[in-house]
Design a protein around this nucleic acid. Structure first.
Lengths: 209, 209, 209, 209
DNA sequence: TTCTAACCGAGACGGTACGTCAAGTCTTTGA
DNA sequence: TCAAAGACTTGACGTACCGTCTCGGTTAGAA
């Protein structure tokens, strides 16, 4: 979050907390209606019933606003224990795919990533607001699989972290690529195949190592 | 390719073939200097020594131009036979990562994918110009592995195609996500780990199946 | 006329005479439909069924073309002998007003005059193609009035020429100003009043001098 | 005037009054340097140190802007009492001719009149901004001549108005035609001749009537 | 008859200006 | 001090014409 709704300074009129949520809601609505490239700050301001100045007082530019508006959607992802690693992976794949189907995410996510290649602060904002926060899914899934005995527990911590990151990039990357680049549906069959590949690969590594 | 340099109609001054290449070169140069979002049609025209109207006569908008300018870079990817499936996968992962390191691709690819979520013709152009053309790498690699006996050959064709697609999405997606979203380096260690995961996963599937 | 349909050089295909008339007709039609400022060379060429190059081979620019297209209309003006100077003046005033009512003249005349204030060759073209050719009306009318005895004949030639010019500017200028600037109708009543003023003024001068 | 510098609504930043005058000054300067047809909105904006959008916020197009820029120049015309109708007419003729000699008026006046033949709002703007405001000269001159006894006072009001209009069209039209169409100098001799003609004509009418 | 130079249509070319739009800043009044 | 409103500068947009040029092809008169 950028804006400081809590009183930082002493005097003057306090910022409206309602404005914050109204703006983020309006941003998501605009993303649905217009997509990222046609979304304008003026339009968001109008939808939110707020002056453009108020937007700029809280977010430096369009990209930061969009990241914040979209980030919260990723917090919906959760990982119920479905009894097996394979089932857990399948479930998270389908959940993530459903999220990417929503127009506000599908158009916004790639756009801000694209912008972030030339904008280090934006990249950092994406990492902290979205990426790092969702790594919890991988960590939980792996821990649970270890508890079930599906995965070995004796590896060194560095390798564990590297594999966690790898799995995260593979799952997230594969789903995004399938959905947005290949433009093919992420259905149960595909999710099964991906999960099987990963679980098999993890198992094979364990067998060898 | 959008422009038809070959004579389509009979009469009139023919389009300049030099302009085509000058424009695409200028587009790549502008991507390097400015990135996608700061690239303007007017700037590209100036760099190419061409009038803005000449650009619009051939490409309807910035995105189509960028796709054509970038597509050719992907044709550099190749798959030398390194003796094992694992080595082949590692090699293509590193090649692809190197391509994504280049500023003209890293900024352009995600941007046009983002735009394509709201622009069906653009999505189609990306598929035909970039995505489908690179599937050859997966097909060749799989065929070679089958010849070496690393992979079984008796599966039904539908499954084979589905797995080809899956592998393609996993490799491309994982590399893109690692490089652009997680913003971590795609080095030899990571490439080994990813390759091992995939080869192991494919082997495990074969063992079961 | 700008184009030299007669053979100037020796060899080669001669210019099409039909093209000339088609272009001038098309120009007048375009003036009616679009007015001067919206008339484009490309549109005239299309209407005439002719290539733009053919226009520019014959007329240097839009203004020269329009002058030639409109000039011929002024040749319709004539001065039948109506028996008195007053009647003759009235008649030519109404004729001129009718000409200025036509959309192709009303929009074109002022426009080319405006352009001519910054374009000496154009001004010369207007003088020779339009202005000087219509002075005949004043000369004929004055000569006839002298024959009738309405005006004295003994003045010195320089003064006569000066008064001819004055009368021309007064009649033409007054009608144009009434019709296009004041935007009031040039009807019979107004024509009578103007004629009476002029004839009276000329007579008074004769009385005095 | 187009812009409403006075507060019409309640809130928001008010329009800059300095911008108004800077723009009109810049327009006149551009007319002097470039003439009407080469004058561009972008150039005027640059000269005025103002954004193009600021121009368009206040004037819908080039013609309206030019009318406003030029109209004020006509207010310089005045009618000092020179003792006789003939002298008064001579004076206003020469004054008007001097105004038409200025490059900003000579190129602009005819151009906007030409445009007004296809643009009713523009015609109205010209009438109210320029034409009607200068009729005062004729009214004052006639009234003064009546006070001196040079003209009869007993005519019916309708005829008086019609003759006022006639005189206005004749003087303005003749001067414009002489200066811009015939392209001959409006010197003292010519002014004398025109004045004599008009005064004589008015007197003759009185004699008859 | 055959050459050949100037013509013809079509339409792409490098430009210039257009009028619009959005970004992000600034300046008011009012809470 | 913040808020809403809206005018501000900047700069790119995509379009329309400009006047020029390059094609393939035609049409006379000269050789």
């Amino acid at each position: 979050m950028c804006s400081r709704t809590t009183r930082s300074g002493r005097t003057g009129r306090p910022r409206s907390a309602e404005a914050d949520t109204a703006i983020l809601d309006a941003t998501r609505a605009a993303l649905v209606d217009l997509g990222w490239s046609k979304l304008t700050m003026g339009d968001v301001a109008t939808r939110a019933g707020v002056a453009k100045t108020t937007l700029y007082r809280r977010w430096g530019n369009k990209n930061e606003l969009v990241v914040d508006a979209v980030a919260v959607l990723f917090d919906e992802l959760e990982l119920p224990d479905l009894g097996s690693l394979q089932a857990d992976v399948e479930h998270v794949v389908l959940q993530f795919a459903a999220l990417l189907e929503r127009p506000e995410t599908k158009t916004a996510l790639m756009a801000v990533v694209a912008e972030s290649t030339r904008d280090e602060p934006l990249r950092e904002r994406i990492r902290t607001s979205i990426v790092e926060r969702q790594k919890r899914l991988v960590l939980d899934g792996r821990r649970r699989a270890q508890e079930r005995g599906e995965l070995a527990t004796d590896r060194d911590p560095e390798t564990v972290a590297a594999v966690d990151d790898l799995i995260f990039d593979v799952i997230a990357g594969a789903v995004v690529h399938r959905a947005l680049v290949s433009a093919e549906p992420v259905d149960r069959r595909w999710a099964e195949r991906l999960s099987a590949l990963l679980v098999g690969g993890l198992g094979a590594a364990a067998d060898r190592g």
